[in-house]
Each structure stands twice: as C-alpha cells, then as structure tokens.
Amino acid sequence: MAPTRICLVRTGGQSVAEATQSAAAGIGIPRLANALFVLPYMLILLVMLIIPLGLGIWLAFQDYDMLGGWNGSVGLENFQNLLDDRIFRGTVRNTMLFVLMTTPAFVILGLALALALNDRLRRSAMLRAIFFGSSVLSVTIVTLVWRLVYLPDRGMLANILGTVGLHSIDPVTSETWALPAIAVVTVWWIIGLPMTLFLAALQQIPADLYEAAALDHASRWRTLMSITLPSIRRTIVVVAVVEVILQFQLFGQALLITGGGPNNTSRPMVQFIYEAGFRDLQLGFAAAASQVLFALMLIAALAQAWVGRKREG
C-alpha cells in the first residue's frame, strides 16, 4: 500500500471536539487502574512519536551532523541555508507541481470511477477490484513494473508508440516528462483510495432521494448535479485534503524511477530530506527541511479544508 498512512484520512473528517465528546461514555466507576489499558500504547507513542517530534523540532535549530557532531544552537541558520539552497527550492517546486498534477486527477478520476461503478453488478465489482488492486502493491514493485513500461525501445510504452508509428520517448531521462511520468505511476498506483472513499460516500446517500428525483422527472445529469454531488461535497473536500497530504510525501516513486533527475527536475522534498539526513548526515539541516515539509502540508491541508468549509457554509 502507499508508503504513507491512510489514517491521515481521518483528520479531514472528524473534528477533535466531536471525537472527544463521544469519548465521554465509559462504563463503571473511574479507576486509575483502567489507565493500564492505554499505558502500553501511550508509552510507544511517547517514545516513538512524541519525543522524536520534539527532538526533530529542536534539531532543526542546531548545527548537528553525524560527522562533525553537535556544534550548538544556530537559530534559524538551517532554515536560512534551505532558503538559499537552489536544489531545495527546486524540490519544493517539484513537490508542489506534483501535488497540483495528482490531486485533481485523484479527485476527478476517483469520483468518475466511483460514479460509474456504484452498483451491485458483478462486472462493476470486477472493475472496482482492478482499479483498487494496484494499491496493495509496494512502491518497489510498482516502480519496477513502470520502469519496465518506460524502458526505452523495449518498454511497453515504446512498443505501443512504435505500433502507431510514433517515436519512442524516454520519460525517465526527459526534463519535461520525468515528473509527469511519476505522476502517472502514482495515479495508477493508488486511485483505489479516492475511489473507495467516494464509493462509501455515495452509498450513504438515501435511495429515497433518488426516488423522489425520479418522480420529479429529473434527468440523469440533473440528478448528478443537484443530488449526488451536493450530498458528497464533504467527501470531495476530505479526499482533496487527504491527497494533498499524501502526495506531499512523494518519495519512493521518484527515488526509484528517476532518482530525482534528470538535472533535479523530479527530485521531491522527501528525497532531499532523505539525502541530507541519511546520505550527507546533516541532521540539523535535514530536520529543518522536515519541519518545512510538515508546515507546508499543514498549511495546504488547512487551507483546503477551510475553503471547503466556506463553500459549504
């Protein structure tokens, strides 16, 4: 499945207040011993997530690399260096471009598939299985398959273009096509997630709404525009937010298909973090880049959720 956790999905749907309020109903009398149930998880959460998160924020302000050791706090210098780094700026641009390419595709194609396949027919179930199936594969297999598809001269793409008499291109080594080629792989890989979310939403629409519309002689198009889409508006926003968050984390596909090239035109932010932190061992610098990514993701998601809510209200 996609390298990132689908659990991010839920941040878009349920507000914190909503979720905690419904937590109010425990049974029995309050006892501290009950906290033992959550203790193992809370310990793991603390050690494996909360402490690293704090440490990461701290690291972002330190001059700390594996080779030179810790050279004290440097304030915003890491961030300043990132700003001045041409390659980093490039990765930010690439990542944003990638998000802009994939998110609309996920929303539109995912919705279209869901609308087309939302019935009980066997053949629809089969098609759903096909579109969803690729998302259970790991990034390594997906990129392996697609590198074979993109292979110059002998790849599937070259074969197809050859039969229709076109010159084969090698998207992997093209500055123009490298990032779009990765976007295509990504959409192919995990279109099943948005499709499934939309299908779930479509099934929540009460059937009597459609019956009422049919009695009102609404055309298929009108039914879609005035019943179906308004009913799943919330899900459209959720899917868009989820996809932005997921696609900001582009990494494996780029590393394994293009390696970030050619000439850095497909290098994403996460790859930059990976290389700064684990190849160059500049921990402070890499941590700062992580915080920039985290912040950008939060801003993008919040902005989108906000826009979605405004439209709704």
Binding site: T4, R5, C7, L8, R10, T11, V16, A19, T20, A23, A24, A25, G26, I27, G28, I29, P30, R31, L32, A33, N34, A35, F37, V38, Y41, M42, L45, L49, I50, P52, L53, G56, I245, F248, Q249, F251, V270, I273, S290, Q291, L293, F294, M297, L298
Partner: peptide, 25 residues
C-alpha cells in the same frame, strides 16, 4: 469504555498524533 483521570486529555493527544507524518520524525 473505561473511565480514568486524564483519559480525554490523552485521547486528544492521540488524535493530534494523526497529523504527524513520518517524515517529520
């Protein structure tokens, strides 16, 4: 399903942890 002091506060922390991507840590 259980009640104990601080349960809701801990739960809020768990919910907030959803927002943390692996790259940040």
């Amino acid at each position: 399903r259980t009640n104990f002091l601080g349960r809701n506060a801990l739960f809020v922390i768990v919910l907030a942890a959803l927002a943390v991507p692996e790259q940040a840590i």
